[in-house]
Amino acid sequence: MSISSLNEIPSDAFRAVLSISAEQRDFIHKYMECSDEVQSVVRSMFAVIDSEHTTDDDRHRAFATIADALHLNPEEGHGSYGLDFRKSQTEIAAKHPDPAWRPIVADRHAQMDSQESTFADRVKAILQQKNLTQEELAERIDCTQSAVSKMLSRKSRPQRKTILKMATALNVEPTALWPDLDVAAILDSTAEFSNDRELTAAQAEALGTALSQRPAQVKTRELPSRAGR
C-alpha cells in the first residue's frame, strides 16, 4: 500500500510519533545515520534480545553491540572506529575514567612487569646452569623456540600452565620460576574483595547453591564410656 497524502496515515501513527521521548528520537536519528549493513545488525540484535533462548549474558552483548552501532563518534586518537589495543592498555593507568582507579591499575601493571622480569631472569639462569638451549626447552614443553624467546624477552606473559610445564621440563619447583604462583592469586583476590566488598553474580550464585545444599550425612556412633568415669 502506498500513501499519497498525509490524510491517509492513521492518526494513531501520528500520535505515536509525537509522543516519543527525546531519547527515542535520538535513537531513531542515530539509527537513520547508520549504513544499511549496520542498521541490519541493529535489527538482528533486537531479534537476539527478543528470542526466548537468549541468556542474560547474550542480552547484555546484544545491547552492547547496539550501543556500539549507534555510537558514531570515534575515540580520540584511536582512528575512525574501535581502539588500538596496545595504546588502550598503555593509556589506561593514566587515563582511567575514574581517577581513583589510576594508581590501582598502575600498581597492577608494575606487579605484572615485575613477575615477568623475575620469571625471565630465573629461567635464563636455570637454562645456563643446566646447559640447555631455548630450543631444547621449547621441545620439552611443546611450543616453538620463538615462543620461548618472546616469554624470556618479556614480550609475552606465560600462562600458568606453561609455567608448570617449564618447571617440570627444568626439574624445578614452579615457585622457583614464579615465586608467588600459588599465593598471588589468592592474596590478590582477597585484597580486591576487601576493596569492593561484593561478590560477582557468578560467585553469589555458586555460594547460594553451596549454602542451599543439605550438609553431608555422616554416620556416627556413640563412643563407649571410659571405665571408671
Partner: peptide, 24 residues
C-alpha cells in the same frame, strides 16, 4: 596490529568483574 571494538571491553568487564583477572 591489534584493534579492539568497544563492546569487547564491555564483555570482558561483565565476564571478569575483578580487575586483577581482567588485566591478566
Amino acid at each position: 596490529r591489534l584493534r579492539i571494538c568497544r563492546p569487547a571491553f564491555q564483555d570482558f568487564q561483565r565476564l571478569l568483574p575483578r580487575y586483577r583477572v581482567r588485566s591478566e
